[in-house]
Nucleic acid binder design. Structure first.
Lengths: 127, 127
DNA sequence: AAATCATTTAAAGTAAACTTTAAGGGAAAG
DNA sequence: CTTTCCCTTAAAGTTTACTTTAAATGATTT
């Protein structure tokens, strides 16, 4: 079991962010010690990692909330949760495609700079 | 030459956003007609597409500003502009890598759901 | 015992990128 | 002519996801 400070060290996520996630219902069943201080177990850490992965792939807080609420409802929501993940997977794949598409434009620009630079080089040789 | 409304139709970018980009110095040399209304030419459109590609790949407004300012300074800034684009290219490649990394976690979750569903299926057959 | 430290809460603040509003102007359509 | 439409500006508002602040509590160190 870890305190919030230890989890911060372990995950690199700031303590206020962990509290914020919990308040927003993104981290179910975080326990407290006798003094009311948070204690995180393995399962909490695994939730934190999962939520972090969802956030890093652009899922909004509100949608993660919805997902966690489904989780809390139990096994009857498994197919809906799976559907959410499948949809999100497609969105990630779209994001990746869009990034590649725009990366192409950057590469085109870089190719133009290569041409420009070699032309400027020739000019300075002429002088 | 196109009006702002036509550019909005052509690009899908809202007119207020186009004005905002221009005000922030992201779109150099947009001309006006005799009544002070914006008129966009081919070069303006190409700037809009480029700025859109930079935004879609996560470059902040402030950095695009810096890039456009370098452009305005002329040929002497070509190598610095190229350096900026090379750096940004690497950031895009990092973003893509991170997306793939987190996509893996989503896929792992989806695999778990497949197992869970087949287990639940078996259970219901037993009943 | 006093000071320090990590924690708690609620509430306010921040940053970035737009978006909306308000007030007005000119041109074209009915 | 007057209504409609598209445009103009400056300024205020919105959204999202945190981050910071303030005030308090309890445990540990000196």
């Amino acid at each position: 079991m870890w305190t919030i400070g230890e989890v911060t060290e372990l995950t690199g996520i700031a303590a206020p962010t962990l509290r914020y996630y919990e308040k927003e219902g993104l981290l179910p069943h975080v326990k407290r010690n006798e003094n009311g201080k948070r204690l995180y177990d393995e399962e909490d850490l695994s939730w934190i990692h999962f939520v972090t992965a969802l956030r890093a792939t652009g899922m909004p807080i509100a949608q993660i909330q919805k997902y966690v609420n489904l989780y809390k409802e139990g096994d009857s929501t498994i197919s809906e949760r799976k559907r959410m993940m499948l949809l999100h997977k497609k969105e990630i794949e779209n994001s990746i495609r869009e990034l590649y598409f725009n990366l192409d434009k950057i590469n085109y620009k870089l190719a133009l700079y290569d041409v420009l630079e070699s032309q400027l080089e020739k000019t300075s040789i002429k002088i």
